[in-house]
């Protein structure tokens, strides 16, 4: 039990630092950044309390906001993702989730991909809608969501695969 808490605490801090120190400064093609800190929300243990997840996501988002001077947009997007997570899990893992036996390290890559893709899209759409905060720039919002999501999905899946191999 303590080791799980330890792993997630370390993951929280490492993802936060990697996000603000490296990923916020990539600016691929001028404005595309991956937001990999949401891996923490994706990989949070399923059996744990949803309230804990909501609070932790809020905190994580708030720290990212503090570092990147973005008001509260990351916090809002993370909370939305955390709230939507059970639905995502149900659609992507189906029966496995019903039986509470999803293990992210051993699931097949297809389900994992669906899960991450939908989660990232929800998160980024909320993020950019709030950041731009102007319904007349809907095309800009969609463009940013699409490009950044692609980047985030690729990097997240690579990170998850890379680090799950190590543990086996």
């Amino acid at each position: 039990m303590t080791s799980t808490v330890g792993i997630h605490t370390i993951r929280f801090i490492v993802l936060l630092l990697v996000q603000v120190v490296i990923c916020n400064n990539i600016n691929f093609l001028g404005y595309i950044n991956p937001y990999i800190y949401i891996i923490f929300i994706f990989l949070f243990p399923i059996r744990d309390n949803r309230l804990t997840l909501l609070l932790l996501s809020f905190l994580l988002g708030l720290f990212i906001d503090m570092f990147s001077d973005s008001g509260g947009v990351h916090a809002a997007a993370s909370v939305v993702l955390a709230y939507a997570r059970p639905v995502l899990l149900k659609t992507s893992f189906g029966m496995l989730y019903e039986h509470q036996s999803v293990k992210f390290t051993t699931t097949d890559i297809g389900s994992l991909f669906t899960y991450i893709t939908f989660g990232t899209l929800i998160h980024h759409l909320t993020l950019f809608s709030l950041e731009i905060f102007n319904i007349s720039s809907i095309l800009l919002i969609l463009k940013k969501t699409l490009f950044s999501s692609t980047f985030t999905i690729i990097v997240s899946i690579l990170i998850i695969i890379l680090f799950s191999r190590n543990r086996k």
Binding site: L55, V73, V79
Partner: peptide, 27 residues
Amino acid sequence: LFLLLFCISLGFTIQSHSYHKSTFINS
């Protein structure tokens, strides 16, 4: 809880959109 946290972060966002008021969440 979701509603509460979402409203708080929305509050921060709106606050940051008005000049000279973003005092709490900044780098």
